[in-house]
């Protein structure tokens, strides 16, 4: 997928040098440690990384939903030009679910089991707009129809346990769409679903995002999902974005060894029968990350210089990476 006309439109989100740390009794966990990213209207950014890389915390930070002992300690989050770090709780509340919506990973857990879908949706409408209940209901039914739920007038009376996982995630998406937000942060929303439902939801999200002109951050550990969905990819490792660029750039010519490792370890249709490569070692403990490049202990190319902080290097196009020993584009032939 290539960048299309959306490239020239408004920048809705600009995160720079975001730092979110957790102050635990055992020490400070730098879950997000200098993340910078931008997002334009109508654009889909895939935020990829393994568990504990800080991708979800990045999403929660943007919404101002980091709970103690976590805290934003630095950086800036500009949402349509407005600084969100340090904004009042009331201001953040008025944005959440309204201009910035979030979809969670486990649809079994995100809806309150004792409240009906109708209650969930109407309260979300009324939290941000003073309209009549009947109008809130009408809008909720429209939103359910938009995400492909049949007989929404009837189904809206149901309770969460009466829906399957895929249907519940559609409900969560419909709730996210109620106020036609500018930005949706989706935290692994298809991970808990089976593959056929997953692909349906992916294509619907892509369509909705284009039609409604909203920015979408799709957090995932699955490169395959992101490859088919996103315009751009940002790869996170140990609280930092180690590489970002368009999907084609990052997947075809990864420059960071970690990205290359992720690509190599994913099964693909053309690699049947050959052994998948594996990134050696395990992700460092968050309290005890190597100084400098956090990936150096697992990296085949690491040298002494990697003990220092690698600066962000920009390629000739939109790709950028943080590595002292970026892979040459020709190295790729050796990767499956």
């Amino acid at each position: 997928m290539t960048m299309d006309a959306t490239n020239s439109t408004e920048t809705i989100l600009e995160v720079s040098d975001l730092q979110t740390h957790f102050f635990t009794p055992a020490g400070v966990v730098k879950s997000v440690d200098g993340v910078s990213l931008t997002l334009k209207r109508g654009e889909i950014l895939g935020l990829v990384g393994e568990s504990g890389s800080g991708k979800s915390i990045t999403g929660f930070s943007i919404l101002g939903l980091v709970d103690p002992p976590g805290r934003n300690v630095g950086g800036s989050i500009l949402f349509r030009g407005e600084e969100l770090l340090g904004a009042s709780e009331e201001r953040l509340r008025s944005l959440r679910g309204n201009r910035i919506a979030m979809i969670f990973q486990d649809p079994m857990m995100t809806l309150n089991p004792v409240l009906s879908i109708k209650t969930h949706m109407i309260e979300t409408v009324l939290a941000h707009e003073s309209v009549s209940r009947s109008e809130a209901l009408a809008r909720s039914i429209d939103a359910l129809r938009m995400v492909g739920i049949s007989q929404p007038e009837k189904r809206i009376e149901s309770y969460p346990h009466e829906f399957s996982g895929g249907m519940r995630q559609r409900v969560a998406i419909a709730i996210a769409l109620l106020h036609k937000p500018d930005l949706i942060i989706a935290d692994e929303p298809t991970t808990a679903l089976d593959v056929t439902i997953q692909s349906q939801i992916l294509s619907e999200m892509q369509k909705l995002c284009r039609e409604l002109g909203l920015g979408l951050i799709w957090i995932s550990h699955d490169l395959g999902v992101v490859a088919g969905l996103a315009d751009r990819i940002a790869v996170m490792y140990a609280g930092r974005i180690v590489e970002q660029g368009t999907v084609d750039e990052v997947l075809d010519t990864p420059r960071h060894p970690y990205t290359a490792g992720l690509i190599g370890s994913a099964p693909a249709a053309n690699s049947r029968g050959s052994r998948l490569t594996q990134i050696r070692g395990a992700a460092p403990h968050p309290l005890n990350r190597p100084e400098g490049c956090a990936f150096r202990t697992r990296c085949d190319y690491a040298t002494d210089i990697c003990r220092q902080e690698p600066p962000e290097t920009r390629g000739s196009n939109t790709q950028s990476w943080r590595c002292f020993h970026p892979l040459a584009t020709s190295n790729l032939e050796t990767l499956p």
């Binding site: 939903l65 679910g97 857990m109 995100t110 309260e123």
Partner: peptide
């Protein structure tokens, strides 16, 4: 629980 966090992410007031 997640549904409380989701409720906050939907912008509901703490009171509700």
């Amino acid at each position: 629980l997640d549904f409380i966090k989701f409720a906050r992410a939907r912008g509901l007031s703490s009171r509700r």
